[in-house]
Nucleic acid binder design. Structure first.
Lengths: 223, 223
DNA sequence: GGCAAAATTAATGTATACATTAAAGTATTT
DNA sequence: AAATACTTTAATGTATACATTAATTTTGCC
């Protein structure tokens, strides 16, 4: 009855449901009862139930009594919350990474992610762009070395993923971000703490207000 | 088989285990298998297992294969992580609260918490002091209105609670904190954004380095 | 007595069973 | 036909059962 690999059924259910939600295969507001989820995932209710508890704790899903699991929509207000936190955390994390004077080898994956963003833009592949952008931000946090911080921000990225993907398609191609990332990388290379913090803060201020402006201009209260 | 109130057995198990860990009734490193926990809490393994999943997600507990649930110790490094995040988040949150120009009624619970801290110090009741200090910080975050931020910080407080309680007893009475809180309150009242941020930052820098210094001087790598 | 192999114990992950109860559907009455 | 009472359905939370497997103990052998 056991799974051969290190992944339990509950883990399996968790990743599949999370990716279904991220990729909009289970759209916001979508409600599905546990027994149905269980048959769909080819397992019993138990591991599904455990996965749902985790997803609920991470704010991806709401467990509605007697109805099932509901995919939580993201509102403009939610995005304000999330970006408010990112604006406080990411610049500080970047600044502290700068203070550690990271060497070229450590920064290589950041360069790679940023190059991938440029390449994706040239191909007009917005999904690839977003994936590379995620990679840039998450890698930076991992380099900084605060696991709690990295995990929390990662969960905020998960929660906001859908909204970011929608707004990405409602605006001009995001050409500025790669340039801003390059500036951040330059400051990181120099070990310039305040420069890194300021550059990252500007980057997050801009992306944040751009995104929220789109949500409000297009009257997208729910995503 | 249902519980009359709105609290499920799983919720009950969660709160009881969490408080047992916080209050050191289940000390760091302590390992207990699920069946034992279940009998101790007077319920079956199922709700206990679900509670443990949540506690694991919050970093209070580690599920050791074939052994049970282990209460995670907090290291000096963990405290550095946690306070690194608090130093970034709390001053920003306080600054934004200042920007909202909170009225006297909103700030009253903060005054109350700070007064309770003073009273507790006069009584020499460090537990009451810590509880009131927690209340001050959590109330401020709740007033600020970012639920994700408040919940995350609350979980960081839970994780660090034991270590804070131990170090609290290894040093002079914390008389400075109430004074610093008063300064923060003064800036909040004036709606002074930068003043609030700076005051809170100084407060957190000081408490943070004090605490970590104690952990290192007393060679307390695990709590 | 010490060590290897076998047997036992015990814990987990998962499945299944079941009581409870909300919601939906049907029947009954006016 | 509308409103109400009754029945049925279905979902959850929890308990229990069970297969798998790691840890422990016992046994047998030198």
């Amino acid at each position: 009855m056991h799974v051969l690999s290190g992944k339990s059924r509950a883990d399996e259910a968790y990743s599949r449901l999370k990716s279904d939600i991220r990729e909009n295969r289970m759209p916001p507001g979508y409600l599905e009862p546990e027994p149905e989820l269980a048959t769909r995932l080819g397992m019993s209710r138990t591991p599904v139930h455990e996965a749902l508890i985790r997803l609920q704790a991470e704010g991806m899903v709401e467990l509605v009594p007697r109805r099932g699991a509901r995919v939580l929509p993201i509102s403009a207000e939610d995005m304000r919350e999330i970006y408010g936190i990112l604006k406080a955390l990411e610049p500080e994390a970047a600044a502290r990474l700068a203070a550690q004077n990271p060497d070229e080898r450590a920064l290589a994956p950041l360069d790679a992610a940023n190059d991938a963003m440029t390449a994706a833009l040239e191909d007009g592949d917005l999904d690839a762009w977003a994936a590379a952008d995620d990679r840039f931000h998450q890698t930076l946090l991992r380099l900084h070395g605060n696991r709690r911080l990295a995990q929390f921000v990662s969960s905020l990225f998960d929660q906001s993923h859908r909204a970011r993907m929608v707004t990405l398609r409602l605006r001009e191609p995001p050409i500025i971000s790669t340039a801003e990332h390059r500036v951040i990388l330059e400051f990181l290379r120099r070990g310039d703490v305040d420069g890194t913090r300021d550059a990252f803060r500007r980057h997050r201020e801009r992306t944040s207000s751009e995104l929220i402006a789109i949500l409000e201009n297009y009257r997208l209260p729910q995503l």
